[in-house]
Simulated assay, not measured.
Amino acid sequence: MESAAPGTEGHQGPHTGPHVGSHVGSHVGSHVDEVDRIVTDWRRERPDLDLEPLEVFSRVTRLARHLDLARRTAFTMHALDGWEFDVLAALRRAGEPYEMSPGALVTATLVTSGTMTNRIDRLEGRGLVERHRSPDDRRGVVVRLTGAGRARVDAAFTDLLAHEARMLQDLDASSRPELATLLRALSAQFDDPPAS
Rank of each mutant, 00 (worst) to 15 (best):
M100S: 04
R131T: 03
L145T: 08
L186W: 08
M100G: 00
E34N: 13
T107G: 15
I120K: 04
D68V: 04
A90Y: 09
S30L: 03
G17E: 04
M100C: 02
S58N: 02
D86C: 07
R46Y: 10
D170R: 14
A70K: 02
T109V: 12
G125E: 07
F85A: 06
H19T: 12
R133D: 07
G140Q: 01
W42C: 05
D192F: 13
W42M: 08
R46S: 13
T146C: 03
R150N: 02
V141S: 01
A165D: 14
T112V: 08
Y98F: 11
L110E: 08
L69M: 10
G125I: 03
T16S: 09
P53C: 05
T112R: 11
P135F: 03
R59V: 05
D170T: 15
A180I: 05
D137C: 06
V142W: 01
A155N: 05
A188V: 14
R119T: 00
S113G: 11
L49R: 15
L63R: 12
A94N: 04
A89G: 10
R46C: 08
S3Y: 06
V143N: 02
I38G: 04
D172I: 02
T158S: 11
R119P: 00
R144W: 00
D48R: 14
F75C: 00
L179C: 10
G149A: 10
A64F: 13
L69C: 07
D192N: 09
S187V: 15
V35H: 01
R176F: 02
G127E: 07
T107C: 10
G127V: 02
S3E: 07
D121F: 13
S175R: 11
L49T: 10
A64L: 15
L69W: 12
A180Y: 07
S175Q: 09
L88H: 01
Q12L: 14
L161N: 07
E9M: 03
H66Y: 15
V60G: 06
D170M: 10
V28Y: 08
T61R: 10
Y98M: 03
L171D: 05
L110Q: 13
Q189D: 15
R92S: 04
T181Y: 01
A180C: 11
D36K: 01
T107H: 14
H11S: 15
R65Q: 12
F157K: 03
R144T: 04
V142T: 14
G147R: 13
L183D: 07
